[in-house]
Simulated assay, not measured.
Amino acid sequence: MPDISPRPVPFTARTAPAALDDLRARLRATRLPDAPENAGWSLGTDLAHHRELVDHWANEFDWPAQEAALARLPRFRVTLGGLGIHYVHAPAVAPTGPVLPLVLSHGWPDSFWRYAKVVPLLTDPGAHGADPADAFDVVVPDMPGYGYSDRPTGPPLNSIDVAGLWAELMGVLGYARFGAAGGDIGSHVSRYLALDHPDRVVAVHRTDAGVPVFTGDPADLAPEERAWIESAAAWGASEGAYAAMHRTKPQTAAFGLTDSPAGLAAWIVEKMRAWSDCDGHIERSFTKDEILTNVTLYWLTGTIGSSMRMYGANAAIPPEQLARRVEVPSGFSLFPGDIVRPPRAWLDRTANVARVTEPARGGHFAAFEEPEIYAEELRAFFRPYRAPALG
């Protein structure tokens, strides 16, 4: 990792050939587990699909080509809070009106990769069949412990901490006021940006409201809210083992996932399939190369352990912080393939809701799965907040 700087410096990742040789050697030496006949994905990652994916990774996947494609995004590093933070900073192209700065926050298991497809649609809408007046200056940071940002050597940062770093980053870039958007952990970061910096965040957009936390009297909840909380608890019981591991014993899992690329891919790919709008067929949402670009970023940066540790930090956020209501104008795009989708009553309880939509397609990784739909969701939501905020 390059030296960190108190001022933004351009960044280009260049993987040493020896690192790729080591990766391929490990992949070719993979010892796959057995699986019950016809288990498919019912017990986790499907053996037949994973054998095929590992073979493709070892023998066909062209990481230098993917690395070069990611390098076309304007990328930088800067020191924030003693950590080197990697980010994309893509200015608007040929705007015809006020340009709104927009910080996009990713989640797990991903990085700035989540927004790689959508950046040009947001910075240059005119070149993609949309109104040039909807152009954004786009900032996409890697959270600490993810991607090309530094891994904290002390206690992991939580979403409140990261929101503070992003507010500082936007100040470093000269943006007094800006919009915020995100999903997964990035939804929490965006929420805390709006809560802690309401004088700077003009509006906030999220693709989820997180796993519900309610400490009041259940009788005060609407019936659909109670049903949603029950369904979220059922989802956690059947699908949340990964999160329990992340919260409680991430270091144990990190040994195997940091040493075995096939194991790392199995851990990540199962979630990419389960959380996307793919009807059980992951390659309807992501090509093999797209899957492996995400996984290879984790492998080469060695960030699977540090990314998991953020779960424990977030679990320790005090209940009074979780209960705060967002008063900044809030928008939600609830994609059909996402997990734990909240009812409108819960959104109104927790935020000053200005807009809620239910797009026809897309899942948890909507910005990557359906970039055109996601970009239009952001353009439409933030349109009323451009001139009042920046004029």
Results as ranks from 00 to 15, higher is better:
residue 161 D to H: 06
residue 351 A to S: 10
residue 288 K to D: 14
residue 325 R to V: 09
residue 147 G to L: 09
residue 330 S to V: 00
residue 170 M to T: 00
residue 275 W to A: 03
residue 178 F to W: 02
residue 357 T to M: 08
residue 335 F to V: 05
residue 87 Y to C: 05
residue 357 T to E: 00
residue 19 A to Q: 14
residue 63 W to F: 07
residue 344 R to C: 00
residue 390 L to A: 10
residue 170 M to Q: 01
residue 111 S to P: 09
residue 359 P to M: 03
residue 298 Y to I: 05
residue 342 P to N: 07
residue 244 A to C: 14
residue 233 A to L: 13
residue 49 H to D: 13
residue 141 P to T: 01
residue 91 P to I: 03
residue 66 Q to C: 04
residue 300 L to Y: 04
residue 335 F to L: 03
residue 296 T to C: 07
residue 239 E to D: 11
residue 281 H to Q: 14
residue 15 T to K: 00
residue 183 G to R: 01
residue 339 I to E: 00
residue 177 R to D: 11
residue 254 A to V: 04
residue 292 L to V: 09
residue 201 V to A: 05
residue 349 R to E: 01
residue 190 S to V: 12
residue 9 V to R: 08
residue 61 F to C: 07
residue 129 G to S: 09
residue 250 P to Y: 06
residue 155 P to E: 15
residue 85 I to Y: 00
residue 380 A to T: 15
residue 89 H to L: 07
residue 295 V to Y: 02
residue 138 V to L: 08
residue 88 V to P: 12
residue 175 Y to F: 15
residue 132 P to D: 05
residue 253 A to N: 04
residue 125 P to R: 03
residue 291 I to Y: 07
residue 370 E to P: 00
residue 209 A to E: 03
residue 238 S to L: 14
residue 233 A to N: 14
residue 285 S to W: 03
residue 236 G to Q: 13
residue 232 A to F: 07
residue 62 D to R: 07
residue 391 G to F: 11
residue 275 W to R: 01
residue 68 A to T: 10
residue 9 V to D: 02
residue 149 S to E: 04
residue 166 W to M: 10
residue 51 R to L: 14
residue 39 A to I: 05
residue 39 A to H: 08
residue 232 A to M: 08
residue 98 P to R: 15
residue 253 A to W: 02
residue 235 W to C: 11
residue 331 G to E: 01
residue 296 T to R: 03
residue 11 F to L: 10
residue 282 I to G: 04
residue 44 G to V: 05
residue 60 E to H: 15
residue 62 D to A: 00
residue 76 F to D: 00
residue 9 V to N: 03
residue 101 P to F: 06
residue 56 H to K: 12
residue 388 P to L: 12
residue 152 P to S: 06
residue 67 E to P: 05
residue 47 L to K: 00
